[in-house]
Write a protein that binds this DNA or RNA. Structure first.
Lengths: 168, 168
DNA sequence: AATATATTTCACTAAGTTTTGAAACTTCAG
DNA sequence: CTGAAGTTTCAAAACTTAGTGAAATATATT
């Protein structure tokens, strides 16, 4: 397969893939483009390679920087800003886990905490089913939370090494 | 907090939560409603409680059944079909993992396989960066794949027990 | 300070997704 | 076989989210 074609395919599918992971399509495409670029790119480079508007590049780059997946690079003597992606895929994954945990899991756990006790007769089957559901989701969430914290703190080899021991 | 209010809140936020996890809002709301219902509900019950149209209920119920999160229940003597949710949250989670792995991770790995070898000079920095990126993502993906397979096969206590040993 | 270059913002538009509701279809009882 | 009850389909409408491009702002150069 030719390089150009392979690059296009990779960018397109990383975009599709990302859109299932809380990262919008264009954001993921920009990230893909930067991952396979040996050198940092400017906003104009990205506009041109992906055929998207300046505003779109700007917004998505900002988000990528917020997520910690892309870095602003200042090249001495250059007027423009350049951008480069985090290329260590383990770091990319833990970064995403960290952000999503903060944005989704943590607020959900806070809510479940509040919902856990409702007024009324503990014998009523509606109340019983409700509190049981809530508390089992909450217990599960707390475990997941703890596990993800560990994951984010761990380093790749350590983590995969241990995991492989568990899942032969 | 009153039961009614707590139920509403739970349904609403499970919907919002689900929409970040590849499950659309209404689908997640129906699932939430069924999880907290002590008895199976009919399509009409769901329409009424969530204020959504018959078509919408029907389509989303179908998807939930496809995902293995909801079961069709036939109540003897009743003409209507009733529905009941999987209430074991561990099963819900592994079911979702299984489906998403099949729909997303597996196709991505198949693609990366193809992209791994491109024609051209191995010394060219564009080719070098591309193949390195692809192969590191692929290695990572294969590990994740193996791990998720294990997870789906494992049972809850076994899994959490082992995990807790790792992440004290 | 004036000019050129680069970046950010945001109202508008385009694209994509979900929901509705009525019609078509299916099933069952009499 | 007929009609009532239940379920499914699908085109159109409503809603949601993403992308554009031009204007505003910021930064650097002479």
């Amino acid at each position: 397969m030719k390089l150009e074609e392979a690059q296009q395919q990779f960018i397109a599918s990383w975009g599709a893939f990302g859109s299932h992971w809380g990262i919008n399509r264009t954001m993921a495409q920009i990230h893909a483009l930067l991952m396979i670029s040996p050198d940092p790119l400017s906003q104009d480079d990205i506009m041109e390679k992906l055929n998207i508007s300046r505003g779109n590049v700007n917004m998505n780059i900002r988000d990528l920087v917020d997520w910690g997946l892309v870095f602003r690079i200042l090249i001495p003597g250059e007027r423009k800003e350049f951008f480069s992606a985090e290329k260590d895929i383990w770091k990319v994954a833990t970064q995403i886990v960290k952000e999503r945990k903060k944005r989704e899991l943590d607020p959900m756990l806070r809510l479940l905490d509040q919902l856990e006790d409702v007024e009324g007769d503990k014998k009523d089957k509606h109340i019983k089913q409700f509190t049981e559901t809530i508390s089992s989701i909450r217990r599960f969430g707390l475990q997941a939370d703890k596990m993800l914290d560990g994951l984010v703190r761990a380093d790749e080899n350590w983590f995969l090494g241990n995991l492989m021991k568990i899942f032969r």
